[in-house]
């Protein structure tokens, strides 16, 4: 089975102070740590598990510059057989339609049976890459999958719904499956994996040849800014014991709970 996985290299913003660049539309990325998008980690792990189970080969794709190659090397280290990186400066700050066009360009004429990607990215979170790629390839897609099993030329997936529900869907291959977090436990990278990765190829494709213009891509980022702050919490300060005493008083005031 020919399997592909798309991963994205995104800034880790969990503990970072974010600053907007002078253009008022983009993030100042300099100095921020970057890592593989959280959803993509699960997609990658799932791809490796499927490869191990049904056999075949796994190609990892990334739309990004050279620095982003780190995430591709991670793919190779945990089990991908080869990697493809496509980039052109025109893709910096690209919208989901442009990214999808680049993804389509990167896949080229290779026919993959199964393409996995994260259900969304932690930076912009559009969640459109997978379905748009599927449309561009003219194949099936299913989004927000938290369980899957390949069965011959079909794949049985569970889509995550609201309120603790799920729906089981059978999808014909080839298909693009967008993976939700929690579907598996992504592994750590091993030293042996890193060493093996060094011997695996990373093809670099020039994205300049990809036609990024589309009706859909007519999205213009007008501004990027800090969200308006609500009233926010009243902060309790002091030692843990002092803070605990304040909390206790609040719980008593709330009435009926203590």
């Amino acid at each position: 089975m020919k399997i592909a996985v798309f991963v994205k290299h995104v800034p880790d913003v969990a503990e970072a102070d974010l600053e907007v660049a002078a253009d008022g539309r983009t993030l100042k990325g300099a100095g921020l740590p970057f890592e593989m998008n959280e959803w993509d980690r699960f997609a990658l792990e799932e791809a490796v598990l499927i490869k191990d189970e049904v056999g075949g080969d796994l190609t990892a794709f990334l739309i990004g510059d050279e620095a982003a190659e780190e995430s591709l090397r991670r793919c190779l280290a945990v089990g991908a057989d080869r990697a493809v990186r496509l980039w052109d400066e025109a893709l910096s700050g690209a919208n989901p339609f442009e990214i999808a066009a680049a993804m389509r360009g990167a896949v080229g004429d290779d026919n993959y049976d199964l393409i996995l990607c994260g259900a969304q990215s932690s930076d912009y979170g559009y969640g459109m890459g997978g379905p748009l790629l599927a449309e561009a390839l003219g194949i099936n897609s299913v989004a927000l999958v938290n369980k899957m099993k390949v069965e011959g030329s079909k794949v049985l997936v569970t889509r995550e719904l609201e309120g603790g529900w799920g729906e089981e869907v059978e999808v014909n291959l080839p298909a693009v499956i967008s993976i939700q977090t929690g579907i598996n436990e992504p592994r750590y990278v091993s030293i042996l994996g890193i060493k093996k990765a060094r011997k695996k190829p990373i093809d670099v494709l020039d994205g300049a040849g990809v036609d990024l213009s589309s009706e859909g891509g007519k999205l213009v980022v007008e501004s990027l800014q800090a969200p308006p702050l609500g009233e926010g919490a009243e902060f309790l300060e002091g030692s843990p014991e002092e803070v605990a005493e304040r909390c206790l008083a609040l719980l008593k005031e709330a009435g009926g709970v203590l």
Partner: peptide, 18 residues
């Protein structure tokens, strides 16, 4: 080297995670 960066990161992830 990129390999050294990967090793550093692998060690960091393992240590932070466990």
């Amino acid at each position: 080297t990129s390999e050294q960066i990967d090793i550093q990161k692998a060690a960091r992830e393992f240590a932070r995670g466990e």
